[in-house]
Design a protein around this nucleic acid. Structure first.
Length: 427
DNA sequence: TCTGGGGTCCTAGGACCC
DNA sequence: TCTGGGGTCCTAGGACCC
């Protein structure tokens, strides 16, 4: 059966969540601010129209805020997480084949349920209405033969009123789709960021339609495997599967910027200990243990004239653990190694490396162990992890570069080997 | 001891996503 | 004065081993 993907995405998610509980804000221009009320992480439609970009520092938009009466809310991630789950519950009633892609987006495989509806767009409109009724949140729905096309459709649904929030590029006449693609910049495509868009422009690829017409194999040579996949996906060849079961995290990070610069070891220790504990909670929530953790502290990169100190250290644990006390102790031990008095620190955090079979040990600390040279240190770290997890696992699963894989598997790509064989020859 | 090529593994960092 | 937090994947190139 031909695959059909739907992407359901909440409009201005954080702002919409706040508005559900503050209806009087419905028509007031507003933003939601990051931690420490530092910068805008969500903007309503009106504020977007004023040209305020994602991540704009709040202090930089004071004048604009005064002029247009922009309200600012501090973020409440517990609320957003809860609202997110409610949306997913509503969508799961349509099909269990659902991938929660982010806090405000889900992909659904809808080909098996389509016969119950007049057409895909009708299904989209019903989803939209049911989410609105159950949660109060407005969503847009994009429908297409690949995830990338569903993303593109969702973009069109959001941007052009004519779609009324639901756009199905799969049922659309080809001339119409090509017209929309001609009117949409290549940089809007999922996976094409700023740098890539710039490079594309140099090759006179400006619009989505231009990109569609570029041969995938050629694009692979110029941009790599990610771009090749994008090109196929735009042509309706689905290369990205629905991931219904969220894979376990490969790393868990807890970090925060400080409201004010921090110079004292004790204050950093307090922060690092908190992050270790938070990370440990996340670990236990996904039933994982970590074999190594990285502690990092940073000065303010926005003040390049001030002395900068970005330092991190990775510690291999004697035993993989999810224990708060153990992890906190290790984190503080690491902090002591990298802390230097006299710097104004602006951020601190802890990262857990979860891949027992693919450890990332940059710099290891071993008591009573003289490590000569980087490589010797790494090998000792590897050996110490090997001895706990078993050699076979680590050695056989060691990561490979593209070149390694090409040699091992006969010039196939590492992550898409099975899929690759299924791809039809491009027209 | 010197020399070189091929294979392997890892790091660092870029780019992207929300 | 004030500038988010949490992720993934890919690649170039260095270090090392045989």
């Amino acid at each position: 059966m031909t695959k059909i993907f739907a992407l359901v995405d909440v409009n201005n998610f954080y702002v919409s969540c706040e508005r559900v509980f503050a209806p009087k804000m419905e028509n007031v221009p507003m933003v939601v601010l990051s931690n420490n009320d530092g910068c805008a992480v969500a903007r309503c439609a009106q504020v977007k129209a004023l040209g305020v970009k994602m991540g704009t520092p709040w202090f930089q938009m004071q004048e604009l805020a005064k002029k247009h009466g922009i309200a600012a809310y501090s973020s409440n991630y517990t609320l957003y997480g809860d609202m997110s789950s409610r949306v997913v519950e509503v969508l799961k009633k349509f099909t269990p084949s659902l991938e929660v892609y982010s806090i405000d987006e889900s992909f659904l495989a809808i080909e098996t349920v389509l016969q119950q509806y007049a057409d895909p767009a009708s299904l989209g409109h019903i989803m939209k209405q049911e989410v609105k009724d159950a949660t109060g949140l407005p969503v847009c729905v994009g429908i297409g033969a690949s995830k990338t096309l569903a993303k593109l459709a969702n973009h069109l649904a959001k941007k052009h009123k004519i779609f009324a929030g639901v756009c199905d590029v799969d049922s659309m006449p080809k001339e119409d789709l090509y017209q929309w693609m001609t009117e949409t910049a290549a940089g809007e495509v999922w996976g094409v960021g700023k740098q890539t868009a710039k490079k594309l422009k140099e090759l006179h690829i400006h619009t989505v339609f231009d990109l569609l017409q570029s041969p995938p194999q050629t694009m692979r040579q110029q941009f790599g495997i990610v771009m090749e996949r994008i090109c196929y996906e735009l042509r309706g060849v689905s290369c990205l599967q629905l991931e219904e079961v969220a894979p376990a995290k490969q790393q868990i990070v807890s970090s925060r910027s400080f409201g004010k610069p921090v110079t004292l070891m004790e204050e950093l220790a307090e922060s690092v200990a908190t992050h270790a504990a938070r990370g440990a909670e996340k670990l236990r929530a996904q039933k994982s243990v970590t074999g190594a953790l990285t502690i990092f502290i940073q000065t303010n990169p926005f003040k390049p004239h001030e002395p900068q100190h970005h330092q991190s250290i990775t510690i291999a644990l004697a035993d993989p653990s999810d224990n708060t006390l153990m992890l906190t102790r290790a984190a503080l031990k690491g902090l002591k190694q990298i802390y230097q008095a006299g710097f104004k620190y602006k951020k601190a955090g802890v990262m857990f490396n979860l891949l027992a079979d693919k450890p990332t040990v940059q710099q290891s600390l071993f008591d009573d162990m003289e490590v000569k040279g980087k490589s010797a240190g790494l090998m000792k770290a590897m050996d110490s992890i090997n001895s706990r997890f078993g050699n076979a696992v680590i050695r056989s699963a060691a990561s490979g570069t593209k070149q390694d894989w090409q040699m091992r598997s006969g010039n196939k790509s590492p992550n898409y080997t099975t899929r690759w064989d299924e791809l039809p020859v491009a027209q």
